[in-house]
Amino acid sequence: PAGSAAAGEKIFKGKCAACHTTLEAQGGKSGPGLGGIIGADAGKRAGFKYTPAFTAASFTWTDKAMYEYLKNPKTYIKTNMAFPGFKKPEDNANVVAYLCSL
């Protein structure tokens, strides 16, 4: 579903920013930087130690792939991310719209 980048930014700040920056670089957080993540190869950001599943991944983060991942990250690919996924499809769509805007 289509989302709002402005609404997604607010959700990102409340749910994601503790572990992720909006830069490409990790920035000392526990998760990889997410700037420019849409269109990037999964598990290939320099400076971040990914799970073996992510390191071996051979897909590109599209808006659709990110939307599916954020529904329930641990069922999408083996990850150490503690976030269980968005319960509301509109929250998921809004965060994906925000990530697309970075």
Rank of each mutant, 00 (worst) to 15 (best):
P1W: 00
P1H: 07
A2E: 08
G3I: 00
S4K: 13
S4Q: 11
A5H: 10
A5R: 11
A5T: 04
A5Q: 05
A7P: 12
G8N: 02
E9V: 03
K10A: 15
K10L: 12
I11P: 05
F12K: 10
F12Q: 04
F12S: 12
C16F: 13
C16Y: 11
H20F: 12
T21M: 01
T21D: 02
T22N: 13
L23M: 05
L23F: 13
L23S: 09
A25E: 07
Q26K: 13
G27V: 01
G28K: 04
S30T: 14
G31K: 05
G31M: 10
P32V: 06
P32Y: 07
G33W: 03
G33C: 01
G33R: 03
L34N: 07
G35N: 02
G36N: 01
I37R: 02
I37W: 02
I37T: 15
I38F: 07
I38N: 07
G39W: 01
G43H: 06
K44V: 03
R45V: 08
R45S: 13
A46E: 02
G47M: 08
Y50H: 12
Y50G: 03
Y50R: 06
T51S: 15
T51F: 12
A53H: 04
A53L: 00
F54S: 10
A57D: 00
S58H: 11
S58W: 00
F59W: 13
F59E: 00
T60N: 05
T60D: 00
W61S: 07
W61L: 01
T62Y: 13
D63A: 15
A65L: 02
A65C: 08
Y67Q: 05
Y67M: 00
N72Y: 11
P73Q: 03
K74R: 14
K74A: 13
T75I: 13
T75W: 00
T75A: 15
Y76V: 04
Y76A: 07
I77C: 09
T79K: 09
N80A: 14
A82C: 06
A82Y: 14
F83T: 06
F83L: 11
P84G: 12
G85V: 14
G85M: 01
F86I: 10
K87D: 15
K87V: 15
K88F: 12
K88L: 08
K88M: 06
D91G: 11
D91P: 14
N92E: 01
A93L: 03
A93P: 09
N94F: 05
V95R: 10
V95E: 00
V95S: 11
Y98P: 08
Y98F: 15
L99F: 05
L99C: 08
C100W: 01
S101Y: 14
L102Q: 09
L102W: 04
L102H: 09
